[in-house]
Simulated assay, not measured.
Amino acid sequence: MDDVKESCLFPERDRVALYEATAPGVSPVEWAMANVERLNARLVTAGAVLLRGFDVPDASVFSGFVKVFGEELAEYTYRSTPRSKVGDVYTSTEYPASEVIPLHNENSYTSRWPQRLWFYSAVAAQSGGETPLADSHAVYQRIPADVRERFERHGVRYVRNYRAGMGISWEETFPGMDRAAVERFCGERGIVVEWQPGNGLRTTETCQAVATHPVTGKQVWLNQAHLFHVSSLNEATRLALLELMAEEELPRSAYFGDGSRIDDADLAAVRGAYEAETLAFPWQAGDLLMVDNMAMAHGRNSFVGPRKVLVAMTGSHGSRQTG
């Protein structure tokens, strides 16, 4: 008899399939091995799959669960936020507990991104700390047509400046690479590299704003303009930084692909679409979450108390073939 019951966390939208162990000691690795096709199929229709109540004592079991699905765990290269490696997986973004990470699709600020994300709630926060999700196709549909058209026509240009003491350094962004390796990596992806005085670096890359899901064929909103654009900063921080440096010198900036400015109002509409489509549930210790990275955006809410969520990334998809 299968000691696991199936339901759906958000049945009105058929988002986030839930599989709950009804008996203690059920191995997520063994159960997944017997149900790979079932889970893969449900991930396509529900966008995310949550396993709850299984026996997940540590990161090695989490890693073993991910490997059941036959995909190599990806290295987090060309990163935009600080993380630490734990075995062959990573911590979630190491931002202060008070900060909110807006909804986004992982690595959608570049031309290649993981197909799947995997989360393991090792320690659930006392309150808050949810990993909210949003249907990327529903977000696309909710954004006003004229805003969508501008983004689709031009794409998004990301300008990143890496310097000591502000944001993350190029050494953190490209772990284990020297300057020559960084130039090779960027050259293969069409990223423009400009070395700056004082061991600084600027990269510029123009990417997709929208993509087509390879399985469902749906159009999905797939960029991080709303995170990189200067309007993402609170007003005090924005004014203080712009007194010190030109906008193009900020750690992160976003423009339309032709270099023209993105209007704050356009990004307010994008943020409004994400807010309207947000789905959130409280983590429980031991939860395992599979996410289709193109179908569903994710973020992080602020929290109180200790919180430890580990992350893995697998598969690769993109808007430009590399090297």
Rank of each mutant, 00 (worst) to 15 (best):
W31F: 06
A124M: 04
G190Y: 15
V215P: 12
W221T: 01
D14C: 06
F62L: 04
E94W: 01
E183L: 05
L43A: 03
R142C: 10
G257R: 08
D264P: 13
E71W: 09
E277W: 05
A246G: 10
F54D: 06
R320I: 13
I262S: 11
S111Q: 11
T22M: 11
A48Q: 05
H317P: 00
G323M: 14
G187W: 04
Y19N: 06
V220R: 10
P102H: 05
S136C: 14
P82W: 09
V215N: 07
Y274G: 01
G318W: 07
E183M: 02
F65L: 04
A240Y: 09
E130I: 03
V86Y: 02
Y162Q: 09
G167V: 08
E152D: 07
Y255T: 01
F62A: 04
R112C: 11
D258I: 06
P28G: 10
E205L: 04
T203M: 12
P214E: 15
A180V: 12
E172N: 05
L242S: 04
L51Y: 09
V61L: 07
R184W: 04
P197T: 09
S111K: 11
R83W: 04
Y95T: 01
A48N: 10
L241C: 14
R116Q: 00
V29F: 02
E72G: 13
H104R: 01
A276C: 04
R42L: 07
L288V: 10
T77R: 10
L133A: 14
S260Q: 15
N107G: 14
N301S: 12
V89R: 04
A211Q: 12
E171Q: 14
G167A: 03
A34W: 09
E149P: 13
A297S: 15
E72S: 15
V270M: 10
A32L: 12
R42W: 01
D3M: 07
F62K: 05
